[in-house]
Design a protein around this nucleic acid. Structure first.
Lengths: 208, 208
DNA sequence: GAAGATAGTAATTGATTACAATCTTTTAGA
DNA sequence: TCTAAAAGATTGTAATCAATTACTATCTTC
């Protein structure tokens, strides 16, 4: 007889890889992603260091898997909430909220993204990060363009600048939480921050 | 006889420390600050690795000097331009431009800042980064408050959110340049980005 | 319940790290 | 010009890194 396997050992390869990625995301929430060692990752999973290399050919491949996870998670959540509304402005707000919620749940994710983009050599993981952010910008740009077509958003808006500002807001909140040493401050500041953003892109109906 | 010493060797201690800090800033522009080694720093200065420890008791002290340099440079430049105008809105724009200009000249600086804030242990360098950013936020907050008093800036503005947005803009531009792999894109996007910011904080004179 | 396959362990590799001890060269001042 | 102090070179060390090895435990399936 044995109870449901809540233990940690002898997971099938696919599950083990998934658990490994989660462990990395967790560790990245606590320290600089660039200084995460394979020994630390293994320790977090109650595994020996060498066992990691049975599931990943090398450390770079592990980081690649991590980036793929972040990409799938973030873009997945975003596309999900965007689909729930027809209003581009509401979609942007939901998108922002979904992003902040994701980052609050996984503070390591944006740090990994940032650290990966800083790599000088063109690794696979870096390429994934770059295309991910391009997709992200596209989502924002599309919504802004739609809003301009509907007369909700200022037709003279600089879409590129507004996209940078959108991503910048998230980064700004991350930075603020790093200073405060507390992730939850993000959640409280998200709403007024988006209100500010909305003000900067909205059409002025009562302009002279 | 000897010409003016343009060579690299045998600098007086103070100058050597200054050159070392500059070398670190340069290296941080090219790779993740967390993975910069003392050997790399020494190589950049045409010096042996061991010689570094003649001028800094340990690596942490070196990072501390680097943070102090960044703090002095950034806050110095900002305070200089702020003092040139009485208009808080113009001051904010000059402050933003000065920051972007500084970051464009020293792309390693914001990376160092970000990397340092991510350190789990409370090092001296991290503390410097935190207080630096607090001072920065204070500058923005003061200018916003002044503008509100003068009726230029929306009296209902959420100052905290507007400060986060301000820092976020810089971060957003840094991120954009990381995706593009080109620092100069920042300079082109700075102006329209601030225009967007100004729109979100300005008083609406023709509000119903 | 053996057999083959899969997952994990423990020990070790060579490279790289921050840092230190000792020796040599350069500089500045009387 | 001589000398003491400062700056740098050389060599070395203990710790830590990613990765590999030879081996063992566990699961699955017939």
């Amino acid at each position: 007889m044995k109870t449901t396997n809540t233990t940690i050992k002898n997971l099938p390869a696919e599950q083990r890889r998934a658990v490994t990625v989660e462990a990395v995301i967790e560790l990245a929430a606590e320290k600089n992603p660039a200084s995460i060692t394979t020994a630390e990752i293994a320790e977090r999973m109650q595994l020996t260091q060498g066992a990691l290399f049975r599931h990943f050919p090398n450390k770079d491949a592990l980081w690649q898997s991590v980036m793929e996870w972040v990409t799938a998670q973030l873009l997945g959540r975003i596309d999900k909430v965007i689909a729930t509304t027809e209003s581009p402005l509401e979609a942007l707000e939901l998108m922002f909220a979904a992003h902040i919620d994701f980052v609050a749940k996984h503070p390591g994710a944006p740090r990994i993204m940032f650290a990966e983009l800083q790599r000088p050599d063109p690794t696979a993981a870096k390429a994934i990060a770059q295309t991910m952010l391009r997709h992200y910008s596209d989502r924002v740009g599309k919504l802004l363009a739609k809003g301009m077509g509907e007369g909700i958003i200022d037709p003279d808006l600089d879409v590129a600048a507004a996209s940078v500002m959108f991503i910048g807001m998230v980064q700004g909140l991350v930075m603020q939480s790093l200073i405060a040493g507390d992730i939850t401050v993000m959640l409280g500041n998200a709403k007024p921050l988006f209100a500010l953003y909305a003000r900067s892109i909205k059409q002025r109906t009562h302009e002279r």
